[in-house]
Design a protein around this nucleic acid. Sequence first.
DNA 1: TTGATTAATCGTAATATTGCGATATATAAG
DNA 2: CTTATATATCGCAATATTACGATTAATCAA
Lengths: 108, 108
Amino acid sequence: MGITKIESYSNQTLELATVFKALGHPARIAILEYLAKEKKCICGDIVTELPLSQASVSRHLQELKNIGLIKGSVSGTSVCYCLDDQHLSLIEQFTKHLISQTPSNCCS
Amino acid sequence: MGITKIESYSNQTLELATVFKALGHPARIAILEYLAKEKKCICGDIVTELPLSQASVSRHLQELKNIGLIKGSVSGTSVCYCLDDQHLSLIEQFTKHLISQTPSNCCS
DNA sequence: TTGATTAATCGTAATATTGCGATATATAAG
DNA sequence: CTTATATATCGCAATATTACGATTAATCAA
């Protein structure tokens, strides 16, 4: 890459971009969809569910966790993951805002 | 990268990931925020607004346009861009769904 | 036609992401 | 202690993204 001038953007812009970026991979979307489907917290079943190695799944899980899209708690030898909506309302509000500001008869 | 097994994911998952990915960069978020702020369609002012070269801005604009987050129309020597909410409701629904499925007392 | 303006594209270099096997860590069972 | 199970991390290789200067293409004005 060149140099991303992070300091030039507002914190809100950076936070949004970070969360969106974390959502920008099909494996991570699939993980979130799976966690949404299984009401109870599921752990290593995700590895079985996805077409990826255990190592790769673990990396995706860590990424989602670091950003605050999922939570994980250890119980015995396994780890229980579930959704964490910490940043989701931010995204919902952002998209809502964009939709409300979209002109209907412009650049058509 | 290794090999992303695109064919293993559903079309919906892939579409979501693609749109999120396009939103996963502060420059592109800033572009969308700017277009939301300026009701009228603005063109190369975006270059002035962002801490990036004209070439880089153009690339970001193309990316947003390809995915359907903005529209652009040529008028004279300049190009007029504006928001296109084609995929935004998909994102809003997805995040809404995740929020509704997030357990409140899990992995805490 | 010539020159100015605007935006897209090319080519290249720097950096980030992704995936996997191998390994490390941690808990539980025997 | 030893073994089995579950998960995280390391190290590497392959690939993707990003940025920029330079160039191209297109339109407008004179």
